[in-house]
Design a protein around this nucleic acid. Structure first.
Lengths: 353, 353
DNA sequence: CTGTTAGCGCGTTCAC
DNA sequence: GTGAACGCGCTAACAG
């Protein structure tokens, strides 16, 4: 019995169903589209039976081709390894579900040319819109998308020269909140640690906000440390250098436990993890007695390690992004909007005195 | 400047290009499909120019409709929150990239009916194959997929009554490896902690392998503890009960630091995290002095916390899955294959004496 | 209420 | 070499 052509017994088409139900394709189509009030109960029953019998499932591709809309939206994620992204994704999925879209998730794995390829691929599949959280896309790359092309909304970061909706964290507020917390807890040497930030607006904003915040506290000193997570060698080198400086800074103070004066302020989760791993490895489980750590982003391990964090409203960010996109797809013409959501301080042992 | 989001200027079609190049659609199509040897260099140049000018991008949907193949494969993931899944995904993506597929990633967020919906959706989009890592799909749900339907390959777990290719961890070997390690380190009270395992083959196998392994070591006692991570209340309750028993077990021994006799063996990363969080919260940063922890899966935080783990060859698992699928799509008729990859022991402080 | 007709954008014979 | 015509599965007028 095994048909040599194996696999596909070629799925039933709308014509098959029509024939099986003894009617025309139109009626089937109408049935599928919920125009049931226009069908005689009798015909309707026959159609249902036929569909059931043939296990018919409409071909979305063909449907989209005809209609001009396929209900697909693209979601470009720079790094799924980052819990932040996954959380945003969950919001995106929920919203898609609610609004009837199917998200096409593309994971660029932190590679710029992958991002470009995916964007082009999405375009090729005629997605109705795109949600972008990328690290290297330039205005030019996004041109076919944002401007006169398909609607796009940016997540977490904006792109220079590109005017589109954006939704993300209120970086300024979050940074202020964190800085104030550290100062209030008595830390007076703050090191803001961040990945190269020239090209990522959110990082840039956080760094700027940090320096801005410091102006309010003349008694505390602050500096920015740049950490390149991509290159393992370079990372190790930077961390070692950082360590030496940290030793110096700490050594200059009272060695007692209650005397921690310096706090590391990680610009995001990955940075915090890199720092924590390094410090743990170098100073053992008690590393937190030497230096405080606070991070924007609230990954699962933060609670385990007792790290104070600024939790982002990730789910909402994703949800709002889809809502924005949906409006654009529906023809919304207003000028580009920004949606900045507030972060929440989760206080834990790492910054306690 | 900038029209806000002017409605789609309707993308150029193949006909547009043909007209622009002063030729017929056929030639364009040939050009696109690389049959360049059949085109006069002159025509070819005109086509290239036209495509460039119109920024033409072939419509994959239409293409797929006609060809019968759209190069789409579905990837159903039960839980993207689990780093394991993301790592597998990276392997899948790499393989897809290499083999020319576009993975349609569906995240079921641990909801069984979502899985069913997605599977149906994928079918509707006529994906050429599916990679499934789900938790609740039954043989029936997968029927249209595995058997006479589109090719499928299972990841990490198999489904009762469904014969398809599967790739995952060598659970037996990994569990043996871990158990032996614990015993060799001198632990003689082993608690295997696992989520409800009746319906998940990999968990079932690990639990069985654990009990099997114990038979080799008459001097050590072992038991299985079931942890339901889904329900927060129930989880807390179980953990508290577990704690009490742990107190008893530990109290019965010498309280000295070097005398740890009981080890927790987490069946996977999420379980390990739940355990670690709870113990940390209850006993503070020094919780590891009371009890050892070892886990299958090697999430990022494991190093930070100094947890000994069995790392799964996640990337390879994903990669192999796509390769299997590719062969099936290409008509491979052999009977269902299993690919069991070995785990690797990563020894860290948590199990040191 | 229902069937007929004409494409959606593209690939593919099959003639020229 | 090149292009016209047909059809993939489906929807949208347009009749009946």
């Amino acid at each position: 019995m095994s048909t040599p052509t194996s696999g596909a017994p070629r799925r039933a088409t709308i014509s098959d169903v029509a024939r099986e139900a003894g009617t025309g394709k139109t009626s089937i189509s109408r049935y599928l589209n919920g125009e049931l009030s226009v069908l005689s109960p009798q015909l309707r029953a026959r159609i249902e039976a036929a569909i059931e019998r043939l296990d018919y499932q409409p071909n979305q591709m063909a449907r989209g081709l005809k209609r001009g809309r396929n209900r697909l939206i693209g979601m470009l994620v720079a790094d799924l390894t980052n819990p932040y992204s996954v959380e945003v994704l969950q919001g995106v999925e929920a919203a898609c579900h609610a609004l009837g879209y199917m998200p096409l998730i593309c994971h660029a794995a932190n590679e710029v040319d992958m991002e470009r390829r995916f964007l082009q691929l999405l375009t090729t599949y005629r997605v109705e819109g795109v949600i972008v959280n990328a690290l290297g896309v330039s205005e030019e790359t996004l041109r076919p998308v944002g401007g006169g092309g398909i609607p796009a909304v940016l997540v977490d970061r904006s792109v220079d020269g590109l005017v589109t909706d954006m939704v993300g964290l209120d970086n300024e507020g979050a940074t202020m909140l964190a800085t104030r917390h550290l100062v209030e807890r008595g830390f007076d040497r703050l090191w803001f640690v961040v990945q190269p930030f020239e090209h990522i607006s959110s990082r840039r904003q956080r760094e700027a906000a940090f320096r801005q915040a410091l102006k309010q506290y003349p008694q505390v000193s602050g500096r920015t440390v740049v950490l390149e997570l991509g290159d393992a060698d370079e990372l190790a080198q930077t961390l070692n250098a950082l360590d030496a400086e940290l030793d110096a800074a700490i050594g200059a103070q009272a060695p007692g436990e209650g005397a921690r004066h310096v706090a590391l302020f990680a610009a995001n989760g990955p940075v915090a993890l890199a720092l924590a791993r390094h410090l743990h490895q170098r100073h053992g489980p008690d590393w937190q007695k030497r230096v405080a750590l606070l991070s924007i982003d609230d990954p699962e391990w933060a609670e385990l390690a007792g790290i104070t964090t600024i939790r982002q409203p990730t789910y909402d960010i994703g949800y709002r992004a889809v809502e924005f996109l949906h409006q654009r797809i529906d023809g919304e013409q207003s000028s580009a909007r920004d949606c900045l959501l507030p972060g929440e301080l989760i206080e834990r042992a790492s910054t306690a005195r």
